[in-house]
Nucleic acid binder design. Structure first.
Lengths: 234, 234
DNA sequence: GTCTATAACCGGATAGAC
DNA sequence: GTCTATCCGGTTATAGAC
């Protein structure tokens, strides 16, 4: 049913105008160098109005991040449908995600400080990030489910989260990586994924029971965290 | 030789007065809740004077951190002299470091956001942190040298840095851990160290050459970074 | 409920006088 | 070396218009 559109979605339009303007400025000038006054002016609204739609500068950024995340999930789909080797799936999914972030490497590096604050909603381990985090972890679950390799069944409940953690580590590396064309990050992805695949195969051998047990003990000890904890169960 | 002390070290005194005041306030009220104006007032100096001695609030914090780091290095010495099992040495050194941080857990958690900024001098991977970082890594080298277990020789040049990285991961976990008495962190230290010890032993077996090679390939690919990179060589 | 305009608060940082 | 005054930007508050 069509709303009496004249004014009904006027707010929606303003909101999105502000957000688009902010995103553009963030990408052009970085986070710190973009002021709220600048966003408001460029969007042709009053400063107060920007705050009417977004509680804080962080919230603007969060809205941007939510959109990026959707793109990342989408970008990984084709790989999950085409590739079926564990290593190739892992490499593919991580590369697809980084490709989305790469055009604004400096912005994400700058933003990392916001995300690292344990109390920030942008923190990847926070309660507020749970929906985003879980959708990512679920994707690593799919990645795992569609692979031809056999995986130790003791690890199955943990692996999606562990792979997500692996990918977080790579992002941390990427943020600090200023090698040309980010070659070092890509070597890390390549060799790191190979090693993970190799270790999983190794640990699956019959004589490796003690190792598997040690790993499971480690993982069990981390479960049942309070809120805002790395290993809170999905 | 005694300086004409009257005025010569007056600056030194003011500087240390400001620093002590700041540290006290940081510990009592946290980082954000402590303003530069508050520090100056409490120390009985003008705001501008605080900035004369410390370029920024971050720099004040850095001075605090440098002191903490010395304490951490000292606290680990007894363990290195008494214990000689790999696992026990690793557990001991990490526990000793965390014990120093524990009284101000909230402060360090809050501070993590500052440290995460790739451009912050407090960033553990930064150029400015290099002295502190290297002294830590060197201590992990000592830890390794004094252990009775045999370690794959291919890994020797990398292991101190890797163990340091392992301990950074534990600190990241600790920051987000709000379990009572931080039990989950201590389980992680215990089981994580056990697993590391186990993996090193495993990978040292004769048939494990391919695994060792894969690991060395991974590590070599990360070396020779630019400045401010996780794997810059010592 | 949507929006403008303006002023003010707060705290990190800087300039320049003494 | 030390001070006062000032800037700057995130954020809040207010008062009113559609």
């Amino acid at each position: 049913m069509a709303l009496p559109a004249t004014l009904a979605n006027r707010g929606e339009q303003t909101r999105s105008l502000i957000l688009e303007t902010a995103i553009q400025l963030f990408c052009q000038r970085g986070y710190d160098q973009t002021t709220m006054r600048m966003i408001a002016e460029r969007a042709g609204v009053a400063l107060g109005n920007a705050y009417y739609y977004f509680k804080s500068k962080d919230h603007l950024m969060q809205a941007f991040y939510a959109r990026i995340n959707e793109q990342q999930l989408l970008a990984a789909r084709p790989i999950l449908e085409l590739e079926h080797g564990f290593k190739q799936r892992l490499i593919g999914i991580i590369r697809a995600e980084l490709a989305i972030l790469e055009p604004n490497h400096a912005l994400w590096a700058e933003l990392f400080k916001v995300a690292a604050d344990p109390r920030s909603p942008l923190n990847p381990f926070s309660e507020e990030s749970k929906p985003v985090r879980n959708s990512c972890i679920k994707q690593y679950g799919e990645m795992l489910a569609g692979t031809k390799e056999k995986v130790p069944k003791e690890f199955l409940p943990y692996l999606p989260k562990l792979l997500w953690l692996f990918h977080m580590g790579i992002i941390l590396f990427w943020i600090h990586d200023n090698s040309p064309a980010r070659v070092r990050t890509h070597r890390l992805i390549e060799h790191g994924s190979e090693l993970v695949a190799l270790l999983i195969k190794l640990v699956n051998l019959p004589g490796m029971r003690p190792i598997r047990n040690a790993i499971v003990r480690l993982l069990e000890g981390l479960r049942d965290a309070g809120p805002n904890s790395i290993f809170t169960s999905i």
